[in-house]
Amino acid sequence: MTKISFHHAGGAVDVLDVDPGTSIMRAAVTNGVAGIVGECGGQAMCATCHVYVRPEYLADLPAISDDEEEMLDCTADPRDAARSRLGCQVILGNGLEDLEVDVPGSQV
């Protein structure tokens, strides 16, 4: 299992153990984590699974694709040049066994 922590404004944290191969978005949506919507089901089409990855994990992330890149300019809360990612494009496991993200205040 891999571990992902969703940090919310105000300090609440959702910590989940999920199967390797699960995206951040899917982990959040199937476990009812507040603040992650995932409207398009994981096609990098909607920018409603935006997360800010905590700095200590940035080096472990996959590269940003062209599709993700343009969609990161469409997020409801401002894009952070280093930390913003689409949750549907980051898959847990395969070297990314532990991850912590901050949930934006808004997705729409």
Binding site: C40, G41, M45, C46, Q107
Partner: peptide, 16 residues
């Protein structure tokens, strides 16, 4: 208050 609506559908058929 802003909330996600379903006008564009959702999941794999989310409006292209």
């Amino acid at each position: 208050e802003k909330k996600p609506h379903l006008a564009f559908g959702g999941g794999n058929h989310f409006c292209a």
